[in-house]
Design a protein around this nucleic acid. Structure first.
Lengths: 135, 135
DNA sequence: AAATTTGTAACATATTTTATTACAGTATGA
DNA sequence: TCATACTGTAATAAAATATGTTACAAATTT
């Protein structure tokens, strides 16, 4: 659910990092992303579950970063958004009576797993602070 | 169109490599992938446009590999299936009046571009023959 | 000529993603 | 204490994308 999850999440976190002293409302954040506030709150719910942010309900409520941006890596964000690098699988179960069909998904998984390792290594080297400081 | 494009294409090519002397019908290939033959023909059309395979119409027609499997890399297949590694973008144009919204897509593109380089390097080192010989 | 296959278009269905509406619960502050 | 402005979440709707089906002309073989 939500395919631009990573992009949206990093956008949210960048905003929170830019306003470290404020509780930002989902409406404000949604205005920057140009996205429905409910979807912003859903992504924030995910961040909260990972203790990356904290929110305050009620008037003047909102959300605030709860971790050190220098210590939060893009890899962690990547993993929190349930993303996996890969080039996809065919939708249907391939034919188990065909030697190729029987094994293709396993071989693709192996390939994609290597890709993930490479990408993870890269993302591990970039912190939210690094990313945010580009702006 | 077709999201398992890469997986389907490499499945097709692996089959063609396994039967180098036959023209395989879209129906036969579809039976291994468990996919509609029309969709197989669509992917084959893409491969034909890149001169990777040749087909023969009419009775006993079908498709056959037209290149050396040792010289066709997964990177080429990746590119032919129009895939790009990345973690996606938010669907809507972000707010251009917000310093973060204004620039986030550019920064994401830069990040994804690096990811592509890393992944391409990996895929460049694997030929269709390598992949197929695992089976 | 009959049979079989590609190529392609048009349309239908399914799945996934995004958007909207609604409203209960919570904190703020006038 | 009451109006206001938020979060949290569910339910539903709409839009976008992916996959599947049907149909049939054109090509080739036997």
């Amino acid at each position: 659910m939500i395919s631009g999850k990573f992009a949206i999440t990093i956008h949210i976190l960048t905003l929170l990092h830019k306003f470290p002293n404020d509780y930002l409302s989902s409406e404000f954040i949604a205005g920057s992303i140009n996205l429905n506030p409910v979807l912003v709150r859903k992504e924030i719910a995910n961040l909260k579950a990972h203790h990356i942010v904290e929110s305050k309900e009620g008037k003047n409520g909102g959300t605030k970063l709860a971790v050190n941006a220098a210590e939060l890596t893009l890899k962690q964000i990547f993993e929190m958004t349930f993303e996996t690098i890969g080039l996809g699988f065919a939708k249907n179960q391939p034919n188990p009576d065909c030697p190729v069909g029987k094994n293709i998904n396993q071989h693709l998984e192996n390939l994609y797993s290597e890709m993930n390792q490479k990408v993870s290594l890269q993302l591990e080297g970039i912190s939210l602070e690094d990313f945010s400081n580009q702006f």
